[in-house]
Nucleic acid binder design. Structure first.
Lengths: 157, 157
DNA sequence: AATAATAGTTATTGACTATAACTATTATCC
DNA sequence: GGATAATAGTTATAGTCAATAACTATTATT
């Protein structure tokens, strides 16, 4: 029997009572996210990417020619906050900004070969990092989780 | 057939491609949380509570006599950031700070009757707000979601 | 042609988190 | 038992991030 010497203090605090918070979905979502996020962040930092820049790079890779407003919309962020992120991706040679001839207000964003490769590599690392955490979560539970989260998200739109 | 005039633009953007992001748990968690959080925030604002102060009030209510370090630990936040929050809860007469006789470094936190009542009322509102969003998610899916999220969280400790 | 709206940009603000440094008190160690 | 280390609470501060407003250039509307 794997009985150790440590008492209740061993992991995650001395079992605080909770009759309400833990039954709220928002709370559970936040807690789960707080465990995963730092690992994803660490994985992406190896390639000097933040979560948000990786997200942008990824969507741009999958949608060559997308413009900034559409990207902001897809990632549910303000287009003003996108500017510096695209600036950096562009300066690093990961994406290109090209004026759309038919509408010169817009910039078509396209990932370069380097950008696409970096996206794939970084995605692999994040996936691996997540798998570490998921641990004993089997494929069925994982699939169910993803489906339910997706449904949750869709319900609000 | 509920065919409307609007095209693909109707809800959530014109279906942007995504071969990677949507398969990451961190991304799905964040997106789901981003839908729920504003509603919870709005519900709590009716009682001049923020999510974090509600969380504190709730844990204190369930753990009369808990001290600030333990609370910070339970909510995974910095104890320095807790100070002003407890200050406010105390000033509003929702919790009391009382020196622990056996260890005068510590303050025992206890919710007042008003605090406990507010907690219950606010919790009810958040629950209702969440239920609006959950919508078509049946009890079985909800229970499964909560269990899996809990497991995810525990796996990292 | 005048007016609206849209895309991108810049600057700024407020909220939140993390860190370091400090005081008071208690625990540990020689 | 006294020096030293550790802990609880606090304060101040700095960094991160999201939201807002205002601006220019361009296109759409009437």
């Amino acid at each position: 029997m794997p009985q150790t010497d440590d008492l209740s203090e061993d992991r995650g605090g001395p079992t605080v009572e909770d009759t309400v918070l833990g039954d709220l979905i928002g709370y559970r979502l936040k807690r789960a996210y707080m465990q995963i996020q730092p690992e994803a962040q660490r994985a992406l930092a190896e390639d000097d990417l933040r979560v948000v820049s990786f997200s942008c790079l990824s969507i741009i890779t999958d949608n060559a020619g997308i413009v900034q407003s559409e990207l902001a919309d897809a990632l549910q962020m303000e287009r003003s906050n996108l500017v510096v992120i695209i600036d950096e991706l562009e300066q690093r040679g990961l994406v290109t900004r090209k004026k759309v001839p038919t509408d010169r207000r817009r910039y078509a964003l396209t990932a370069t070969l380097r950008g696409r490769r970096l996206r794939d590599r970084a995605a692999e690392k994040v996936r691996t990092a997540e798998d570490q955490i998921i641990g004993r979560l089997d494929d069925k539970d994982r699939a169910h989780l993803m489906a339910v989260l997706q449904r949750l998200e869709d319900n609000t739109r």
